[in-house]
């Protein structure tokens, strides 16, 4: 067997993860399900990869259907596992991707600041959320590729305006230059945490999957 091939396998996340998974037990307090939507090619997969693996690569294949990544973050002393779903951007994949809206607690709407159409379509993506997601889902609009200022066609003001109009958080990001990626996910996660912290977690079992082992009496509202 080819050495290069084998070493590639050994280095692969899947292999390591698989090995770890054999031993690993649940190590988080809360599980938040997030979803990335937006036109094809705006950089959803790259944003996710930057967040989960802190790296950027141009060798991704287009997302066919649905993909996902996991990252655990710590917020206010709680370990929060983010299960982040990545979707195909092409419109005809909606039948597949909209079924993931329902379970999402937070949704990132991504456009590309160098692509006018992807910005205009944010309204369409918002409509999709209204139709398919939970009413109280946390939303955030991301204008990605803001390292490419020379090719910019959507001003920051327009991004902020549409976010304000719909009462949604907004950020410009760059997966390539690592601008605001961590911040975006952390803010979205915090917003969800704010919402869930006050509630009894067991009240919304289909949206807030809480470790059963978490002691009810413990400092939920820390």
């Amino acid at each position: 067997m080819n050495i290069r091939f084998f070493s590639k396998l050994l280095r692969s996340d899947v292999f390591l993860d698989y090995q770890l998974r054999k031993m690993a037990k649940k190590t988080y307090d809360l599980l938040f399900k997030l979803l990335l939507i937006g036109d094809s090619g705006v950089g959803k997969t790259c944003i996710l990869f930057r967040f989960s693996d802190d790296a950027f690569t141009t060798t991704f294949i287009s997302t066919i259907g649905i993909d996902f990544k996991i990252k655990t973050v710590e917020l206010r002393g709680k370990k929060i596992k983010l299960q982040i779903w990545d979707t195909a951007g092409q419109e005809r994949f909606h039948t597949i991707t909209t079924s993931y809206y329902r379970g999402a607690m937070g949704i990132m709407l991504v456009y590309d600041i160098t692509n006018e159409k992807s910005f205009e379509n944010i309204v369409k993506w918002l409509r999709n959320i209204d139709e398919h997601a939970n009413e109280d889902v946390e939303k955030m609009i991301l204008g990605n590729k803001n390292d490419m200022d020379e090719k910019r066609v959507v001003s920051r003001d327009r991004g902020e305006a549409i976010a304000r109009e719909h009462g949604i958080r907004f950020m410009e990001t760059s997966a390539k230059a690592n601008i605001n990626i961590d911040r975006a996910f952390n803010e979205l996660a915090e917003a969800i945490l704010d919402k869930t912290a006050g509630k009894d977690p067991t009240e919304a079992p289909d949206r807030v999957l809480v470790e059963k082992r978490v002691d009810r009496g413990s400092n939920r509202c820390c």
């Binding site: 590639k8 396998l9 899947v14 698989y18 993909d67 299960q83």
Partner: peptide
């Protein structure tokens, strides 16, 4: 999650 991971990995 484990099943998803392996099913997306060509190898």
């Amino acid at each position: 999650e484990g099943m998803l991971k392996v099913s997306y990995e060509p190898y």
